[in-house]
Write a protein that binds this DNA or RNA. Structure first.
Lengths: 226, 226
DNA sequence: AATATACTTGTAAAAAATACACTATTTAAT
DNA sequence: ATTAAATAGTGTATTTTTTACAAGTATATT
């Protein structure tokens, strides 16, 4: 199919999750050019020759969201020769979790992209390349991580209620959890700091606010220790 | 450090584990050329332009061990620009578990390699590139897998005793396990088939032989279901 | 004051993990 | 034939973890 002399191109694609409007969403960009012109895709780009892969993924993330210092983990490297219709492109995929609040989506005008937007992960448009598979696999990985490591806090604001925390778990795992058991388990982990504040009662009974203690995330297959 | 026009090279390296002489070992090759001439390294090679990454890893594995149909899982992609002293080489690392018995190590004469040998994983020689890190990370991953998935059977012969199975766990986890609890847990999993045979008493009391029921391994982050 | 809504809390049962010591079968030596 | 040495095999009690499950509390609205 390809001449053996042709070289590989190496990219990184970043699946960026957030919670917004009570839904779990991923960031997608609309492609300006062929292949897959007009189709939605995960943000990505070429890895520069003197840049680590992590740095490339961070750069992509920052270009689109202007966010730094977030949880970013290498997911898997996808390299089927047929994944790109006209070239051999190996992509090292990452996933990230961010709070969507204080984020302004952006893209350079002269770019490969005509739009940037959050899409509900359980209701995605048709995607370019193998990006559907990459997102599904990301979701699987995030769920695995959640079992061992409270990475969901990356999706929450600094101060949050236990109900919000539980909701983020439910969105990711896509199932209901028992409220009392959830709270019991989390409080036992002693990674939560109970604050002296409550929600300013948007309505109804105010809820206690919590924040996370500093925890150490090891981003290369992040397990955590408090 | 590199001109941005220079292209990446993409390789795959495979950490191959086995149990031999009562020790957990990895397969290393001695490099014939610079860089790291004469140093031991994990077997690896370039990914061909129309080959999947999995296929490339299998090819490397087969070249050195002539083994096929074994557990092979993508580990991580290492891409520090400084990991190779003179080029930008991104490597997609895999690990594999094989039985060393019926294996004849081999390498082509006109090759990059002057020797192929098993080395105890807890007593490694100095290694080329970042291969020490890659092996350490493999070991971490194998241990993680072992918690959920009895991949250790890949290291055992067709028929084995429970003591041999336990020993393989102890070698990988590098700690002693309780004999009764180990047996209880494994028998409860009902993935073992008790055979009507016993060891032909090399000495002492003969031990019951078992084999594994067919289990499905999902090699892309293999979990298993019996 | 009554009502609606979301917040908070505890206990009992089941399941899983752990700790722990003796008997059984064989070979080799006397 | 008896004994010693080596490895195989087995069960129970305790602790820990997970699960299931329902009623009272604080605030805002009417």
């Amino acid at each position: 199919m390809f001449k053996e002399t042709k070289t590989h191109e190496v990219t990184t694609d970043v699946v960026i999750f957030t919670i917004k409007d009570g839904k779990l969403k991923v960031l997608l960009v609309k492609r300006a050019h062929e292949p897959f012109k007009g189709k939605w895709a995960i943000p990505g780009g070429f890895i520069r020759i003197s840049e680590t892969i992590d740095a490339a993924a961070l750069r992509i993330l920052k270009e689109k969201t202007n966010v730094q210092n977030i949880y970013l983990e290498q997911l898997y490297t996808f390299g089927d020769p047929l994944r790109h219709p006209t070239a051999r492109v190996i992509t090292c995929a990452y996933f990230a979790l961010i709070r969507s609040d204080d984020i302004v989506l952006s893209f350079e005008d002269n770019s490969e992209i005509t739009e940037v937007q959050w899409h509900p992960v359980y209701d995605l448009p048709p995607l370019a390349f193998d990006h559907k598979e990459i997102i599904e696999y990301s979701l699987k990985r995030v769920r695995e991580r959640l079992e061992f490591c409270p990475i969901a806090f990356q999706l929450l604001p600094e101060k949050f209620t236990l109900t919000e925390l539980q909701k983020s778990y439910e969105l990711i795992l896509d199932k209901k959890l028992d409220k009392r058991n959830f709270r019991k388990k989390f409080l036992a982990l002693s990674i939560l700091k109970e604050l002296d504040e409550c929600t300013k009662s948007g309505s109804k009974r105010p809820a206690r606010l919590y924040s996370f203690n500093e925890i150490t995330l090891n981003s290369k297959r992040g397990h955590f220790f408090s």
